[in-house]
Design a protein around this nucleic acid. Structure first.
Length: 141
DNA sequence: TAGGCCATCTGGTCCT
DNA sequence: AGGACCAGATGGCCTA
């Protein structure tokens, strides 16, 4: 709620030709609709904030924009999915490390311990062109 | 000062 | 009918 434009309830209203009570009624409905819309956007922004907390962010100084947050979430999910599918495909010496990584991610993202995901390998997306790269999530060599 | 990002208003459409 | 959702328009704030 940073800048509020002056309420535009008086803008473009031609309904005053039908009498003052009609005009008042439409004005009241418009104001109510505006309030609902504000509330809805507030919920949306709360959701974005929640996403920002979960998604990796380099340089904590700058807050991710909504678009960036969405892009980052997409890349993050893809990277996680890749880790999961690689992990299930071959039981490697990295297995324990991966399990550890996943556990820590799980407890960070889902503090209550609840996590759902599709069956491994069902979404083979490793070929997808990520807008961002997640070197940080790579398996140590 | 231009450009990016955002909040708000508004009218349209769809759903309950 | 009224609410939810959406997209376009508008204007404010901030930063390079």
């Amino acid at each position: 709620m940073k800048s509020r434009r002056p309420s535009c309830t008086d803008s473009g209203s031609e309904s005053d030709t039908k009498g003052p009570e009609k005009f008042e009624n439409t004005t009241r409905r418009r104001m109510a609709a505006n309030a609902r819309e504000r509330k809805r956007m507030e919920g949306l922004n709360t959701a974005f904030d929640g996403l920002r907390k979960v998604v990796p962010q380099w340089g904590e100084d700058k807050k991710l924009s909504k678009y960036e947050t969405l892009q980052m979430a997409l890349s993050y999910i893809m990277a996680l999915n890749r880790i999961l599918t690689d992990n299930s495909r071959h039981s490697t010496p990295h297995r324990q490390w991966l399990d550890l990584q996943f556990e820590s991610l799980q407890s960070e993202v889902y503090p209550c311990g609840y996590v759902t995901y599709g069956s491994p390998g069902e979404n083979e997306t490793s070929h997808s062109p990520f807008p961002c790269h997640f070197e940080g999530f790579g398996v140590p060599s």
